[in-house]
Each structure stands twice: as structure tokens, then as C-alpha cells.
Design a protein around this nucleic acid. Structure first.
Lengths: 254, 254
DNA sequence: TCACATGAAACTGTCGACAGTTATCGCGAT
DNA sequence: ATCGCGATAACTGTCGACAGTTTCATGTGA
């Protein structure tokens, strides 16, 4: 599938800041890749894309560089760029890292949310409920992102960047149909609530437990959907690490 | 200090792959920034740099984009790029994340190193000793990097990328004079040995403990050097998280 | 029918130039 | 002396074009 056809019906690029076309292009392509609209394996030909987006190849190439640095696009010299995907192992390890960092983030944030942040997180949580019931998954995603972001808000800039990057990467593999089961949705909303309560009330330990539980659930469903029966050894190890396997039931098998 | 003067005496850019000037430029500048040769605050003027490096501005700008994505260089539209530095808080949180990820990495790698990797790590450890005694800190850094890399080698691609990035970022703030005290050096070599032993023998729990201890020591020294008396709350929280503060001596103070 | 060479077409990487924006310096007013 | 203001210089962002590389189709031989 050519990139031209993929973008055919879609609304074109909107250049936010005419002083920097390349960042708009970057944001545009990044969104399309992360949302899954441009699936892994798609070839991105510079000339074609430049024509479709009505920009020259210079800013387009700069956007490519940024996407490459994020690991979203291949970077072989003199070869077409290709949208990259994650295999099961990469997905597993990505989630393992996300769980550790986001749990750490929740712990750092526990008891340190401002009144305003608490209000905003509560609003996001409510918004998630509303948009889900309305079937507006695009808006749900936005609210969900904001909610998670607020719960790790005191992590410090470098960590926040990584967390966001990981979260977006894994979003690509969360299939919408995993949300459509109302029962599962309710359960996940309760998980969100549990994390929120722990962080808000300053219970760092509980925040870690709830965050790890929540994310590992996602991880298992996502990996199971893409590689049935594989299991999630990386995620499991991360959980052991975080959830204090103080017992000597050592789980390291050569 | 202009970038032209900074690079004056230094040996110029060596273009590895003439098919992609931009990646050579990126690697070149990245090294200079990470090694501290180009300090934070330095202004990078495109025309001047392009002249000094004898490349056109197009590949140079693409290299800039990559550096920006890594957080090494500023990205204000229509403004000169500036080499960015980390403040104490960012440094603290960077180390906290590095500790969690690298400990997780050590745990994932524990008992899974190949014979070849064990041999290689042992060689790197010996090399660190040799280069230190010879005062060849550049080579020491290379060996040190390789050693750490091998001990987290089974982490999965995405996590490895982040770990490397964090490690390099923090390297900028490790001052050489912290190494010149022989007694400290011996102690750190013992720490390295302890991590190595734990990972090699498949003791994941010990690997985490030793790795966390080792890195947190570095973190404290580095932060203390740059912000005396500040302490390392982020790192401390990460340690609590990793080292099983199962006791209810909760350390979350609103 | 298949493997392989060959040339054309398509694509990537780089360059110099132009347009628009920001910084700088000098001048005048307060 | 200090602040504001304008003209000029310096710099960034984008573009179209050229050179080098890869890909693909076509034809040739076994």
C-alpha cells in the first residue's frame, strides 16, 4: 500500500507554525504512525510524500530524522524509509520498561500532586467514562493519556519524556476492540481509580502496586493478542522486581 | 565561546560513510557534546559549523534534528541551536530512571549471559583496570561502557536504547577527577565485580542490589559535585522501590 | 523455465541560493 | 547615562536542482 493512497481520503497536513514546516510534518506523521493509520511495513517515499503534503523534501527529511531517532521509522542509507513495528519480544520489553518507569513515576508523584492536578486528573477520569460510553475512542485516548501523564507528573523532565515515548509506542498495539467489552472497561476504570487514590493520598507503595498491576494487565492482553501463548517474561520479571519478591522464591531460571 | 574556536585545534570530522554525511556529523557532534568538549550553553551556528566541518547545511541540519530529539540541543524556531545541560533535578531524575532500568536489565540478564559475553565482560573489567592505571581515561570510558552494556544485554532492544541514552547523558556529568582517587577506584572496581558475579551466576536479586548500589553511588557523587547539599530524593525513591522497602517505614512526606 | 546480466527509471543524499526572521549596532531622545 | 527605535547584518528555514545509488524490468543464455 502506497503512502499516497493511504493519505488520499484523509485531511491534509495543517502547518501550525509556518516558520517550521518540519515540526508540523513530524507531528503529523508521528500521529498517523502511532494511531496505526500508517501500519508497520509501509514505505515512505520522499518525493511522493512531499507532493502529497505539499512541502519540499528538506523539511520532510528532517521530520524523518526525528522519527528515526524515536525508532518509528527505519534508517538505512540510500534506502526507502519503512515504518517499523515491534515484535513480541520488543513489545514485552517495552512494557517491562514502561511499568518500571511509570511505577517509579507514580511513587515520586504520590502525595505531591497539586490541588489543580488532582482536579484535572479527576476530570480526565470522568472524561474517559463519558467518551467510552459515547464510543468516541479518539477522545478517550486523549483523556487516557492525560490521566496517566498527571499521575506521573513529578517524575522530572527526562523521565517524563521517556515515559511518554513508551506510552505512545505501546498505544500502537492496543487494539480498540480490547476496549469494547464493557465489563473489561469497568474493571480498568476501577484500576485507574485505585492508582489515582493511592497517588492522591500519598501512599507511594500502593501507587506502585496499582500502577504495576494496571499496566501489566494491558501488557498481557496486548502481547497475547499479537503472539498467543508466548507469555510475558520481561513484564513478569519487572513485576517481581517492583512488587518486592522478598520471599526467597527466586524466579531466575538459567 | 564560538564553536569554530572550540573545534579549532581538534581533528576534523571523519566521514565514515560518504553515502550519509549526516549520520557522521551526528555521531561527531554527539561525541563532542557527551564528552564535554562542547559544554552546555555553546551556540551552534549552522553556517559556521558547516564551514568548519566542510559539509553543506542540509546534512548538518539533519544531524541537529537528531540531537534535538535526544535532548542534547535546543529546538527553538528561527533561533540558534544551543547545547543543553541538565540541572540538578534533571540529573537526579535521570539517574533514578537509569537505576531502575539498568537494575531491571541486570535482572533480565542474570543467568542468561552466553559464554562469549562472560568472557567479553571479564576482558572489559580487566581493561578498565589497565587503562585506569595507565591514565588513559578515554579508553577507560569505552571499556566501562562496554562492561555495563554487557551486564544488561538481555533487556530487549527498546530498553537497551534508552539505557544507552541515559548512560551517555549522565556520562557528561561524571568529572574525571572523581576517578583519580585510587581508593575510590578500587572500591568501584569491586562494585563492578559484584554486579558481574551476580549476573553471571544467575542471582537476579543480588544483581539488582549491586547494580542499584553501584549506580546510586555514582549518582550521589555527581549530584553532590554539581549541587552541593541538595541530596538525591529521586534516586533515593528509586532505591526504596527496588530494594524492597517491605517494612512500613514509609518515606513519602507530602 | 529459470538464472543472470544490463540498462533505464526511480529514489536518496547533498548542494547552493533565496526568502523570511532574528539579532546587533548605532543614533537620537529623555 | 539609559532607554527606545530603526536600519543593517547575520542567521534560520525552505526550495529546486544535480549527482550518486538502488531497484526494477527487459532481454539473453543455459
Amino acid at each position: 500500500m502506497s503512502i499516497g493512497e493511504l493519505l488520499a481520503g484523509r485531511e491534509g497536513l495543517r502547518i501550525e507554525d509556518p516558520r517550521q514546516t518540519s515540526v508540523s510534518v513530524h507531528a503529523y506523521l508521528r500521529d498517523l504512525i502511532i494511531s496505526g493509520a500508517i501500519p508497520p511495513g509501509t514505505q515512505l517515499k520522499q518525493a511522493e510524500l512531499a507532493r502529497v503534503l505539499a512541502v519540499s523534501r528538506t523539511p520532510l527529511r528532517e521530520a524523518f530524522r526525528m522519527l528515526q531517532e524515536e525508532g518509528l521509522v527505519s534508517a538505512e542509507p540510500n534506502q526507502r524509509s519503512v515504518v517499523l513495528g515491534l515484535d513480541a519480544e520488543a513489545l514485552d520489553s517495552l512494557y517491562a520498561a514502561r511499568i518500571t518507569l511509570e511505577s517509579l513515576g507514580a511513587r515520586l508523584t504520590a502525595g505531591r500532586m497539586t490541588r489543580e492536578e488532582v482536579r484535572s486528573a479527576a476530570a480526565a477520569h470522568k472524561e474517559m467514562d463519558r467518551t467510552y460510553r459515547a464510543g468516541d475512542y479518539a477522545s478517550w485516548t486523549v483523556a487516557h493519556r492525560r490521566f496517566h501523564r498527571l499521575l506521573v507528573g513529578r517524575s522530572g523532565a527526562p523521565v517524563l519524556r521517556t515515559i511518554s515515548s513508551y506510552a505512545e509506542q505501546s498505544e500502537r498495539y492496543v487494539r480498540i476492540d480490547q476496549l469494547t467489552n464493557t465489563q473489561d472497561f469497568e474493571a480498568r476504570q476501577r484500576e485507574h481509580q485505585a492508582i489515582f487514590d493511592a497517588v492522591r493520598h500519598g501512599d507511594g507503595k500502593a501507587a506502585v502496586v496499582e500502577m504495576a498491576r494496571h499496566l501489566s494487565g494491558s501488557a498481557r492482553r496486548v502481547v497475547e493478542a499479537h503472539a498467543p501463548g508466548r507469555g510475558t517474561p520481561f513484564v513478569d520479571a519487572a513485576l517481581d522486581l517492583l512488587l518486592c519478591d522478598c520471599s526467597d522464591a527466586a524466579s531466575d531460571s538459567g
